[in-house]
């Protein structure tokens, strides 16, 4: 039994971390584009901003469970199967990338306009402002956002147990819901709670250490 739980634990971790990584690869640039192309941004492109905003809102308004099912054909097309933890990464990324884009957007919007203006007065290009001013200045806030993203993705990944998505959620449903082994369900839930706590704590610590404002 311990082996089953250990396997589920590593599957959950694998799904969560890989999904977070890929989702950030999409969400970080997307969130940046949202801020930069805003009408008050450093490179306003209002139509692009509106189009992206609508797409993100659409994706974010679909409940994860529905997305999971709707995306089954797409998942099969990409991964070749719809069950197991690798297959679950696909809906996790699709669901969390827009969420991450919004997190990144709100972090970047906190950056002092005056500092950006100072950089512009030194002749910095929009790219330089993104890489040398906005992202570094927002670093502590981005790290906190990342902790929120990881924990959210972890809880999404547990939902994937419904469609045999692997990981701790899958075990909780298989043993707890279908076979009435409540003790195993409780253990897996407890482990999930612990992981969430851990990621949140680590995220806050790193954010605090990296912040030079205090």
């Amino acid at each position: 039994m311990i082996e089953v739980i250990a396997k589920g634990f590593f599957e959950s971790l694998y799904m969560t971390l890989v999904s977070t990584f890929i989702a950030y690869a999409l969400g970080l640039p997307l969130g940046t584009v949202l801020v930069v192309t805003d009408k008050d941004g450093i490179f306003p492109i209002p139509w692009l901003n509106s189009v992206l905003g609508v797409i993100i809102n659409l994706l974010r308004s679909v409940p994860f469970l529905i997305l999971l099912i709707v995306l089954l054909p797409f998942t099969r097309w990409i991964v070749g199967t719809t069950i197991g933890s690798t297959a679950t990464i696909v809906p996790l990324v699709v669901a969390s990338a827009p969420f991450i884009a919004r997190l990144v957007e709100s972090s970047l919007k906190e950056v002092d306009k005056g500092v950006i203006e100072a950089a512009q007065s030194m002749g910095a290009s929009p790219m330089e402002i993104i890489y040398k001013v906005m992202l570094p200045e927002a670093r502590p806030s981005l790290i906190l956002g990342c902790a929120i993203a990881i924990t959210t993705i972890l809880s999404y990944s547990a939902m994937a147990g419904i469609v045999a998505g692997g990981g701790l959620g899958d075990i909780a449903i298989k043993y707890g819901y279908y076979r009435y082994q409540n003790d195993i369900m409780l253990i897996t839930v407890a482990i999930l709670v612990l992981i969430v706590q851990l990621f949140q704590e680590i995220g806050m610590k790193i954010a605090k250490i990296s912040d030079k404002r205090i």
């Binding site: 500092v115 203006e117 030194m122 002749g123 290009s125 990296s210 030079k212 404002r213």
Partner: peptide, 21 residues
């Protein structure tokens, strides 16, 4: 324009320093 701006320094009321640097 970027190059011209390099020959015009600017300072502000709120200093506008990069807080993480």
């Amino acid at each position: 324009l970027g190059r011209v701006r390099q020959s015009m320094g600017m300072i502000f009321q709120q200093f506008n320093l990069l807080m993480q640097r």
